[in-house]
């Protein structure tokens, strides 16, 4: 299988690369459009800030490449947020693959910390991405912005209020948590993305 990880200025790729290697897959890390479009599956990682990431993607025309992709495509954390319509983080228009918008957590309680850092549960799982994953399994989250619940929500998490832990539309998948840091549960989700017969357009 040819697995591509998209290389850009917000990709914290090493951990993901090693997680894939533990599952027997060596990813090709590239920003080359031909390589991306000829991959069997594509992962779009992301740790960083939305506006500088979008600016970089546009400067390399990767925004146009990503929306053309017809193979199974998985955005992680910031990657998932960039696949939404818009992010409140520096008022950034995003790729618009998912209809949901990305907002900043708001808390009236000092006991609720922002960013959310740690293990939270995922529930209302509805996708073969979560085959073999129990309802209310714990995944590792690190984020200050979140995607609303919407038609594309395939998993939910609760922090301040319920929000989308994962989104899915056609061949596009996104997860807010870090599967590469989510112990065995995360490994199962990555394995599902690699092995399940996911939708292509």
């Amino acid at each position: 299988m040819k697995l591509v990880m998209i290389k850009y200025n917000a990709g914290n790729t090493r951990s993901l690369q090693y997680a894939l290697r533990r599952l027997g897959v060596e990813p090709l890390i590239t920003d080359n459009a031909e390589e991306i479009l000829s991959a069997d599956k594509i992962i779009f990682p992301g740790v960083g800030e939305a506006s500088s990431a979008m600016k970089y993607l546009k400067s390399k025309q990767l925004d146009q490449v990503i929306i053309q992709v017809k193979q199974p495509f998985l955005g992680i954390c910031l990657g998932m947020q960039l696949m939404c319509t818009h992010s409140e983080e520096n008022d950034t228009p995003c790729l618009g693959i998912f209809d949901e918008a990305v907002k900043l957590f708001k808390s009236n309680y000092s006991s609720i910390k922002i960013p959310q850092i740690g293990w939270n549960t995922i529930g209302h799982l509805k996708s073969n991405l979560f085959n073999g994953v129990a309802e209310n399994s714990h995944c590792y989250f690190v984020h200050s912005y979140y995607a609303h619940l919407g038609d594309h929500t395939i998993a939910t998490t609760d922090y301040c209020s319920p929000y989308s832990a994962a989104l899915h539309r056609d061949n596009f998948y996104g997860v807010q948590f870090h599967p590469e840091k989510s112990a065995l549960v995360g490994e199962k989700i990555i394995e599902n993305f690699l092995k399940e017969d996911l939708i292509c357009r």
């Binding site: 090493r14 951990s15 290697r21 533990r22 590792y140 690190v142 590469e180 112990a183 490994e187």
Partner: peptide
Amino acid sequence: VDRIAQRINIP
């Protein structure tokens, strides 16, 4: 750090 990242699946 590289060896840890290769082996460990938590942050």
